[in-house]
């Protein structure tokens, strides 16, 4: 690797499979889904369910 020309290095790099994490980070719409789904479920839906579950005063 150390003695390879830049062209060869680039070719070798382009042949390597892209790691799954990088595929995720390169996909803006997957990130958009995660970034909206996580707080929607953990903050809003969970919070709203707790409020809905409060007994109404008689």
């Amino acid at each position: 690797m150390a003695n390879a020309s830049p062209q060869n290095s680039n070719d070798e790099l382009s042949d390597e499979p892209i790691p799954p994490m990088q595929q995720l980070l390169d996909n803006p719409f997957a990130l958009l889904f995660l970034g909206v789904a996580m707080p929607t479920v953990l903050y809003i839906v969970w919070g709203v369910m707790e409020i809905v579950g409060i007994p109404i005063a008689k």
Partner: peptide
């Protein structure tokens, strides 16, 4: 992206009900 928005809850720490 995953966790920053959840901090919104710190405004409700003194609220009853949650």
């Amino acid at each position: 992206i995953l966790f920053l928005q959840l901090a919104s809850a710190h405004h409700l720490l003194a609220d009853p009900g949650l």
